[in-house]
């Protein structure tokens, strides 16, 4: 069962890459804000159906939760806007690697300080090494991308 779940999540990652590639392509003709708007609109429609059939929570509780929890929507919007702006310039892989690094670094910081009621996980030796490897990855992807672009323009 859990192997199946892992494969399923792996597929989730694949769709995320496909999404950034497709959105990058669409934005070249339609524009960054337009592409983001379309992604959000069509996502809303699909989620409306999913919530109707499979939703077990309570959407209306939105009115009672602390407002800071609702502010994350601005971050969601920024996330897609930034990605759609970056993909046409630096390509799918460089964008994705860089995004993941940003995500992990902040994730480690949030864990370390236990912000937003999250579990406190201290920055230990393993995590320092992990940060080091991320920096190495960032360096390689920048180099590798620069080389591909030079090869194409040469």
């Amino acid at each position: 069962m859990s192997i199946l779940m892992i494969l399923f999540t792996f597929l989730g990652g694949i769709t995320l890459s496909a999404q950034s590639a497709i959105n990058g392509t669409f934005s070249r003709k339609a524009g960054t804000i337009e592409t983001t708007l379309l992604t959000f609109l069509s996502g809303t429609l699909f989620l409306a159906i999913l919530v109707l059939f499979f939703g077990q929570g309570n959407v209306l509780a939105i009115l009672e939760v602390p407002k800071w929890q609702l502010s994350a929507v601005f971050l969601g919007v920024l996330f897609l806007l930034f990605i759609i702006a970056a993909v046409p310039k630096i390509g799918v892989i460089a964008t994705n690697i860089t995004v993941i690094i940003g995500q992990l670094v902040i994730g480690i910081v949030i864990d370390h300080f236990g912000w937003f009621n999250s579990l406190v996980i201290n920055l230990d030796m393993k995590r320092y090494f992990s940060l080091l490897f991320m920096m190495i990855a960032l360096y390689f992807i920048y180099k590798g991308n620069k080389r591909s672009i030079e090869e194409i323009s040469a």
């Binding site: 969601g76 920024l78 990605i83 995004v99 940003g102 995500q103």
Partner: peptide
């Protein structure tokens, strides 16, 4: 792209 990732973690 780095900011996008950072934002995603906060989100």
């Amino acid at each position: 792209a780095l900011l996008a990732g950072a934002v995603l973690s906060f989100e």
